[in-house]
């Protein structure tokens, strides 16, 4: 059962890496700024999942503090970009 658990952690990490790669494609491609900001938002959530997986596999609970801070402040950047998009549209 423990080997199965380690294998499941490995498989979940691989799947999250594929998800991050697909999100990077949208980040590079996105036709407008808002698409790129949405991709960055999803990327933060995927990295939160990766750090949770790392917490499971190492047993170190220090990573949980970093995950908590990342979950707390990662949306502030998105809101700042939203304000920036509104101001750019007003100026043009």
């Amino acid at each position: 059962m423990l080997e199965l658990l380690a294998g499941a952690q490995f498989a979940a990490m691989i799947v999250l890496l594929i998800a991050a790669f697909i999100t990077f494609i949208r980040l590079a491609k996105g036709p407008k700024l808002a698409d790129r900001v949405a991709a960055l938002d999803l990327l933060a959530v995927i990295f939160i999942g990766m750090m949770l997986l790392h917490t499971i596999s190492t047993g170190e609970q220090v990573y949980l503090d970093a995950v908590m801070v990342l979950a707390m402040i990662s949306f502030i950047g998105t809101i700042g970009f939203a304000r920036y998009i509104i101001h750019e549209r007003e100026r043009s």
Binding site: L16, I18, A19, A20, V45, I46
Partner: peptide, 12 residues
């Protein structure tokens, strides 16, 4: 674990 990773992949 597998369900969460697959749903995140679906979002991407």
């Amino acid at each position: 674990l597998l369900l969460g990773a697959l749903i995140t992949l679906l979002a991407a």
